[in-house]
Design a protein around this nucleic acid. Structure first.
Lengths: 347, 347
DNA sequence: AACGTTACCGGCATCGATTGCGTAAAAACG
DNA sequence: CGTTTTTACGCAATCGATGCCGGTAACGTT
């Protein structure tokens, strides 16, 4: 491969260059480019030709300085697992067709990162933020500040109950009830709940649904059957072992996420418990992996893509409205997908 | 909830507001803020105090207009599956500590989207691009144009061989050889390769590695054992069925990705073929799902996180250099992770 | 007392666009 | 042919910052 000389290329052409080489004013070029009525068709054509010839690309930064918006949306998610990746795709979909660019940042479940990301995105003058809070976030003052500054904001999935913002959430209560009802119908009477951290609001909502379903069926609530653990497989594994060792043998486990369900499944398998015969299992999220496990995993399916789309729509709505819209909350419905892990009786 | 009156908040404070309310010039404020030596400590303190009081946030857009860079990196990936999500995390990691913001876009494996994303990001004046090409991209003129325009560019994983750019890639040839060597050692002699689309360069590199390994062991190349298919589970399923029905019964299948391996596994299972006894199976990527399948899936592991980090490092290097650096290619090594799906003999 | 230093600070052009206003030339009108 | 109306375009301010250049005042020096 020959060593070729490389030089910094010329600066990109600006509207000025076009004006100069055509002997017209920059205003005329600007107007021609944006199809204003009061510009001579010939002039316009000349401008357009020259623009193409010079490979002119409008400088959005300069534009943003004038218009005070950047046509970009900042998105902050805790991570990019299946659920969030899908939701971001939904946001992307809507944003793209509305001419917006999406800037995605991961907070990595860290409160500090979330703050940093918020700052960064704002400094980049995004037109607003779509956020799902990190699991480490308990204080939402940073979000509150955004709102007082008038930054359009939409929260989704992991939202803060004590923040009066526009939100898109899942009916977690209902999802949990569906799961527990189904387990009850399968004959399970000692249903455990493998929960997330106690401060995690989604987990608590599902817990409420779980408790409501138990009540509805006249089942007693056994606190020993409710175990909190961190959001990873290893913790779930240990929590499940603990559950089994406690002498409180459950006949079903409902978990707050598929990842935890996987941990539980491995622990059950390790302890020689058959699923679903000895212990039925239902997860939450319906990730693709659910149908690949042995046994295939029943799970409460979230409309992640839809959730992203709705969040983006609400966001754009807010952006395009003259006045500030009162916050509202959209609640989406989950659907239980029944697979082998919870089917004790063939229908 | 009381219906509260909401009004657009005041425009954010600018450097001008600080100057005016302090009775000093804009330049002084600017200097005070940036810790220049030639400014009276008292003045500086006053400026800082006022800045805090007015909740002043510097407008990056204005700054970018002057400095001609935005401290942001555009990243385009085909999708956000496990591999790319991990790589993006790697990019994020490096970028964040260097003070850069990462704007991630998905091309959704579409050539058109890739072009659109490129345009959008450039218009947003990102300082450069880190790209992994979509599977639909065969023409790389858009990337070539970037390079002639002097836009810093790093390609990773899915790169174009006919583009003389900085790249970070995996040694696919070696990965495939490791897989096939391992299968050979397990006693397999009729090893099939479930490939991606014929135009997909990564798939072809792995194919070369596969062929080289066969040659090395003196195994004949049977074209019927090489099947191309689209990158999803359903196609892999059908391709595997076709393979089994062809009368060319393989005793091992090496697939270009885990997702295809899953399709193959399901097809094998459906046809009553035992894995690994009848047919051994090795995938590529080592996604988390690999260890959750039954049997657990052997797979060639890619350092996705590392790849993202290296790509970001090369990018920053390019950005910080005065002259344009000659393109170079970093090759990372894969590692075969052996699990149940390919273990015919206990060691 | 006159001059040079130094410390501080302000004016202004600039980055690349948009946009309101003003106006010359051309067209339409009476 | 004079007047009004259009048409088409230029001028200059503006957005929020940076940074060069130059100026003023308080010192110190001889």
């Amino acid at each position: 491969m020959p060593l070729q000389r490389r030089e910094r290329p010329a600066k990109p052409a600006t509207i000025k260059d076009i004006a100069r080489s055509l002997g017209v004013s920059i205003s005329t070029v600007s107007r021609a480019m944006r199809d204003f009525p009061d510009v001579n068709p010939d002039t316009k054509q000349a401008v357009l030709d020259m623009a193409k010839q010079l490979d002119y690309q409008p400088n959005q930064v300069a534009l943003s300085l004038v218009t005070r918006h950047t046509h970009s949306i900042g998105v902050i998610v805790p991570n990019l697992d299946y659920f969030f990746a899908t939701a971001v795709r939904g946001i992307d979909e809507i944003a793209l067709e509305a001419g917006y660019t999406v800037l995605t940042c991961q907070s990595n479940e860290s409160y500090g990162r979330e703050i940093t990301n918020t700052q960064r995105l704002l400094n980049s003058q995004v037109d607003g933020l779509i956020v799902s809070l990190s699991s480490a976030t308990s204080n939402v003052d940073h979000m509150r500040r955004l709102m007082t500054r008038g930054v359009p904001l939409v929260l989704f999935d992991r939202v803060a109950t004590d923040l009066d913002a526009t939100k898109v959430v899942l009916d977690n209560h209902d999802g949990a009830m569906q799961a527990v009802n189904h387990l009850f119908e399968q004959g399970c009477r000692r249903i455990a709940y493998l929960a997330g951290p106690p401060s995690f609001s989604i987990s608590n909502q599902r817990k409420d649904g779980y408790l409501a379903a138990l009540r509805q069926h006249g089942l007693p609530v056994n606190e020993d059957l409710i175990i909190h653990c961190e959001f990873d497989q290893a913790h779930a594994y240990r929590a499940t072992e603990q559950l089994l060792a406690s002498g409180q043998q459950p006949d079903a486990i409902f978990t707050v996420s598929d990842r935890l369900a996987i941990g539980a499944l491995l622990a059950l398998r390790h302890r020689g418990q058959r699923v679903p015969e000895d212990v039925a299992l239902v997860g939450f999220n319906d990730e693709p992996v659910a149908s690949l496990l042995t046994p295939t995993l029943s799970s409460v399916s979230q409309p992640a893509f839809e959730m992203g789309k709705v969040a983006a729509q609400l966001f754009l709505e807010q952006l395009n409205s003259e006045s500030i819209l009162p916050p509202r909350t959209i609640v989406l419905k989950p659907v239980l997908v029944v697979r082998e892990s919870s089917l004790k009786r063939r229908p």
